[in-house]
Design a protein around this nucleic acid. Structure first.
Lengths: 215, 215
DNA sequence: TAGATTGTTAATCGATTAACAATC
DNA sequence: TAGATTGTTAATCGATTAACAATC
């Protein structure tokens, strides 16, 4: 069941399924058919069934899917049944925003440390955690098993920091720096390029306006 | 040239092209072939040529692409030659982070106002702009032509706020709330679902670990 | 001109949708 | 059992890659 490679297109839809299933559960809905779910989510019922079946049949013919069960299964698939310790590198506005975000903890992502190069920020507290100087990162990683490093620093420093992270055996990087990181095979990078996202919006906005001009 | 619909897959790659072209320009590179660019960016040369040709031929046979010219053209395509005024709704950590982010301004995105429901935050300054009470949003939108509303508030308030935005004729929403917004046809929504992104990372991390266990 | 490299058509690949037999 | 709905195979659609003629 776990052998065939799942496409990232499918993986990318799983969190959204989880979100809707959570809502349904909170509404007290016990079962749902792919058809009903498709209407809520504005996707085809076919896609929903295909997606779920990548992981091997969570439904029952003539009944549909049990909301609670499906929610739990997708949680497990996404690895949300485990704890993931993370550190934030860069205690600027964005880094602090992510450190303060409580929902991550609810999902098993535990905020373990935050670092910055700016001495002014060192010692400040972010959700009870003191900002440490970046020089201590290496030592900290040696003494604490960290799964994920969150990069909220400018791109120039990001590239240098990645070397340290790689050396200390980090396995996953959540990258907010506007640069494509060069990491060895086996290290995961998930990019959040905020300006890319804003530019997509800008593109679509401009296109709209051109259309309107034409008629 | 503008008539055929461009797929969002292509649009999503444009900001990345722009980033690389900016780097090349800063390095003083004058011309580049699709082949060279493909090696840098780790995509196929074929895809690069196809992507650019959606917008109608920026290159020259036997020469390649002029870096400066291509950079400018993609900027225009993305609408970065225009000014876009935006307001931020929600002056929490994330909202303030986005307000403080200077690079947006460089791209023509102008920070015009920020609102919050919390009286404690009202009056505080974010990059010189005073946080206004959310009650003033409606009035503010009437008196200022705003292109983009950035939503950095919890999902419950997001849904209500969208009603106001729609009523006041906003055309684009950059949504950081963990909810799919229900807006009338014609209003653009670009979502940044941070927890979805983190869950993708978590999925891939878990999968890696299972693979390692197996051998 | 010859060589290089685009623009573009054709082939392939993968993802989505449709259809329906299996089965609860 | 009959009706509903999944799981899964087949058909379609769209996106990516390959190939090559056009052309600078």
């Amino acid at each position: 069941m776990e052998t065939k490679e799942i496409s990232q297109a499918v993986v990318g839809r799983l969190p959204r399924y989880l979100r809707y299933l959570g809502e349904l559960r909170d509404e007290g809905v016990e079962r749902i058919s792919s058809q009903e779910l498709s209407e809520r989510m504005q996707v085809t019922a076919s896609q929903i069934r295909q997606d779920f079946n990548n992981f091997g049949g969570f439904g029952q013919q003539g009944y549909g899917y049990n909301v609670e069960y499906l929610y739990e299964e997708i949680s497990k698939i996404l690895g949300l049944d485990r704890k993931h310790d993370f550190v934030i590198i860069g205690a600027g506005n964005l880094g602090r925003a992510l450190g303060n975000y409580l929902n991550f903890e609810r999902r098993g992502f535990i905020f373990k440390g935050i670092f910055d190069i700016d001495p002014q920020l060192v010692g400040e507290k972010v959700r009870g955690v003191e900002v440490m100087p970046i020089e201590e990162l290496e030592n900290f990683l040696e003494q604490n098993p960290i799964d994920i490093a969150v990069l909220t620093i400018p791109k120039t420093s990001a590239v240098d920091t990645v070397d340290i992270l790689v050396k200390k055996g980090i396995r996953a990087i959540w990258n907010f720096a506007h640069v494509d990181l060069n990491v060895p095979e086996g290290i995961l990078v998930e990019n959040v390029h905020l300006s890319d996202s804003l530019m997509k919006l800008s593109y679509n906005l401009s296109r709209r306006m051109k259309e309107q001009t034409k008629g």
